[in-house]
Simulated scan of single mutants.
Amino acid sequence: MFTGIVEELGSVAGVVDLGDAARLTVRGPLVTQDVGHGDSIAVNGVCLTVVEAGDDQFTADVMKETLDRSSLGRLAVDDPVNLERAATLSTRLGGHLVQGHVDGVGAIVSRTPGEQWEIVTVSLPPGLARYVVEKGSITVDGVSLTVTSVSDHDFSVSLIPTTLKLTTLGSKGVGDLVNLEVDVIAKYVEKLVATGERA
């Protein structure tokens, strides 16, 4: 479990194509300070399990399911990535409950700069709009954000200077892909309501 508060802007150190999987090595001096085999680290919002760690970097295996459902398969050496270690029971919940299980991939539709912030609009894959509400939470490339507006095909968020500076969202351009995770509570509510209707 994560909070969507990015701890570090890391970078890809290596990618090995394994056919139906990939082995990803990521540089991240902060998140690797106390990392061990089997620990979880979110990379651009995708929960990965550490299989090797050392020298300010860690390696994780990425299976086909994850490659198909996220943008991790498009990463190349030196690409920047958002990193967050798994939350503990003493972690401040500064964002919202994030699983690191990507629901779909969107694309940046537009960026509208303001004096101190920027409004970014992102496309929504089919079927996800019903889980996104104005003033609700959504995770974009591992960053917990508040939705400022939503339609059937896209949503907008406002990025503060800190988010623009310390995450990949500050450098993503129109057309770039981002991993999306909707609020898991909305999915549970939907299932409970549907189950209740059938009872």
Rank of each mutant, 00 (worst) to 15 (best):
R69G: 13
L164I: 12
K172F: 14
V157G: 11
G170P: 10
R23I: 01
T195H: 15
R111G: 06
N82A: 04
A13Y: 13
H101K: 15
T59H: 02
I160P: 04
P29Q: 13
D34F: 00
V102R: 07
T163S: 06
T59K: 09
L128I: 07
D154F: 07
G114K: 10
T25P: 03
D55K: 13
I108K: 08
E8A: 02
G94I: 15
V16C: 13
N82G: 09
V109H: 08
T146V: 09
S11T: 05
F58V: 04
M63F: 15
V15D: 06
T168M: 10
T32Q: 06
C47H: 12
T59C: 01
T59Y: 06
K187V: 12
G54H: 11
C47G: 09
L93K: 03
R92S: 09
H37D: 06
F58W: 05
L24H: 01
G100H: 07
D176H: 05
L177C: 08
E52A: 11
A60L: 13
V120N: 03
L24M: 11
N44F: 12
D55V: 06
P29W: 10
K187F: 10
G54R: 04
I5R: 05
H153P: 01
G14I: 14
I41R: 04
A87Y: 09
G14F: 09
L159H: 00
A22W: 09
Q116L: 15
R74Y: 00
D103N: 15
K165V: 08
L159C: 02
V6G: 09
I108G: 00
Q33H: 12
N82P: 00
G114C: 05
T112W: 06
L169N: 01
A13E: 11
Q116W: 13
S123F: 00
G175A: 13
W117H: 14
A86K: 01
T49K: 12
L67Y: 02
D56E: 06
V143A: 05
S110I: 05
L180E: 03
G127W: 07
G94Q: 10
L164K: 13
V150D: 05
V62K: 03
F155K: 07
A21Q: 06
I160N: 03
G106F: 01
V105M: 06
E8M: 15
V46W: 01
D154S: 15
T25M: 15
G136Q: 02
V150R: 02
V193W: 06
I119L: 15
P113N: 05
A13L: 07
L72S: 07
L177G: 03
S110E: 15
V62R: 00
D56T: 04
A194Q: 14
V120Y: 04
V133W: 11
E52K: 04
V133L: 05
E84G: 08
V150W: 12
G38I: 05
D39T: 10
A53S: 11
L145P: 01
G175Y: 04
V81K: 06
E8G: 03
V189C: 07
Y188C: 09
P126L: 09
A86C: 14
V178L: 10
